[in-house]
Design a protein around this nucleic acid. Structure first.
Lengths: 204, 204, 204, 204
DNA sequence: GATGAATGAGTTTTCATTCAT
DNA sequence: TATGAATGAAAACTCATTCAT
């Protein structure tokens, strides 16, 4: 029983190497060019081994999605729970920051995964999305009095979640690293704040 | 990108049939399953003909993207210029509507193209994006006095453009045809209005 | 009847344009890349027209071979009959020169045709080869007294013909335009002369 | 050029089977009809395997050329070093014989490869040619005193090498197996000997 | 006659997946 | 278990040839 440990250790290392290699290839070449052979090679593993852990390519894609989705979710929770007494504005700012730097090594990866996800893991995506929306809603609730009373917090949270997932990364994609990119993020924060504190007359 | 300019009537018809078939397949099966043979078959044309006009699969993708991007751009311009005297709120509403129903026959197609575009036609995407942002900026300028004076209209337009392109479709994707989807759109309008008319204190 | 002339004129021009285009492509890209479409395009003619004059690709190849083989044969005859009183050495020199500059515009073309010929026109190649060998033999006969008496003139002529057809062009190919190339040609002349005037002791 | 170095026994067998099958097809049907599928089939192997070792058709052609070029080169060296004390005439004779029977199983194959080589492996062809010319030059040097003093041995060797490579095979091609063919070879030997021992007066 | 659009069988090439070692 | 050789169905792409206009 004890002797199994090192094996499991190694297995875990292999799985992670594969996942990491897959992520790299996804970033560098896109999903079209991501072949199991290439993944295995970059992971320093044989194709056979890859299939030991992932029964097919879809499973690999799904695992990547899950892995990073969980990472994102965890980062979100952590960022929010870190400052339990922050102001609404600070909280929003923290969320945007997490959305941006969730994958510090690669915004391209996040984008690519976002494209893959609905195809291979629609359920999971929705689930994580809902979880994050729940967290956001919780935070909004903490500041209920600062928020326009006619706003449905659930709706607002869902909208903000979508915004964070999509707009932030697209903004970076278009104006990478530049001042304009940074400004776009700022504007994003302003937009959310304005929305939350808007008075009724703005409603469509 | 098209190999040659079709001179005869027949040729133009063929090109259109191919483009249409490709769009259908993209919608029905996704890009993965879009093979040149299938496209040709559905277009009622031989593979040879397809390759006469599109030297490779990428070119076909690019042509589709260009075609629909132009269509979207045109729809935008038309929608906006239709009501030259509308209020800011009406204008924003019209824009959202266009973004939503740009392809009345198929929101799925729009979504699929949005995924393809950055990979196959990044330049074009940026170009059309900028063009649309320009139009939005023009509209914002018409209502300068209603908008927070510290807002840079260019920045604001870019942000709104990104929002329209991404959030609207993602919202539809997650909550298709449902009431929530519709509401999300409403909220989107509210958000934009709030942002535009926000007072300084909201700035990040 | 008269009116037919311009038509035939035009047809001949078309045929020649096609043949020339084919020769160019053969030289530039090799036979693999010589497609009927490309030939037609370079000839400034439609594929349909090409097929009007050449029922298939083989026929085109055969026509090229015949065309240039006849040209070579004619050049040979002319070169030899020009100087009916020349010495053996002069005659040999003239022959080498013809073999070299038969296609002043392109030694590569000659080489390529030499490769094609056996496949598409073995009969013709043999025929022209024999014809040229006959001419050479006639010239040798004129100098019978200078030539080793044990040499069979037919055999000698055949060998010389092969030498001219093959060695000269290969020599150019390997050492193009260079001094060495020129020298190789000189050596070739020397070799033939030595062979013809050799005494019996050299026989294998 | 080969995609990867075969590590297992099985792999080496596969590569050899492919190479052999390709050579057979080249001989039987010519390069035009040599398709990767047919090669794989005749080798009793899947197309996939073929592409595992040869990334494309050209690489396959190149590998064949290299393989047989090396074989020829080795045969040449062996033939020459076998009789280190032979006379000049014997040595020349041996060389001619090697050139003729380099591929005892198939002169057609040699011919076909000779056509392919300049297109797919010009460098290699030159290299092997030079190597063989070097060997010839070495032999000539051993008999310097029998050779016309004004001859440049390097030049002579290059010429002889070209002669052997081309004339011999063309001679076989035109007059296969026949007495004339054999005689042509004899004459070739005589020619070379005459050239080497010729006195100055023959020089062009 | 001339044109060039259309054809489709035939090639090359890829890649997820299996399986003997 | 790990390896990497082998598989082969499926994809992309070519090109000689036909035929409606």
């Amino acid at each position: 029983m004890q002797r199994k440990f090192p094996r499991q250790q190694r297995a875990r290392a292999t799985v992670e190497a594969i996942l990491q290699a897959a992520a790299q290839l996804l970033t560098d070449l896109g999903f079209e060019a991501l072949t199991t052979a290439r993944v295995a090679e970059r992971a320093g593993v044989s194709v056979g081994s890859l299939y030991q852990y992932f029964p097919n390519k879809q499973a690999l894609a799904a695992a990547m999605i899950d892995y990073y989705a969980e990472k994102l979710s965890a980062a979100f929770i952590e960022a929010v729970e870190m400052r339990p007494y922050g102001s609404l504005e600070e909280t929003i700012g923290a969320m945007i920051e997490v959305a941006m730097v969730a994958h510090p090594h690669d915004p391209k990866l996040h984008l690519a995964l976002n494209e893959l996800a609905p195809r291979y893991r629609a359920e999971k995506v929705r689930e994580v999305g809902d979880r994050i929306a729940g967290i956001i809603e919780g935070q909004l609730a903490r500041h209920r009095h600062e928020i326009a009373p006619d706003l449905d917090l659930g709706e607002a949270a869902a909208l903000i979640e979508t915004l964070l997932e999509n707009v932030v990364h697209r903004a970076i994609e278009r104006h990478p690293v530049s001042v304009r990119g940074e400004r776009a993020i700022d504007q994003c924060g302003r937009m959310i704040m304005a929305y939350l504190t808007s008075t009724r007359r703005h409603a469509a």
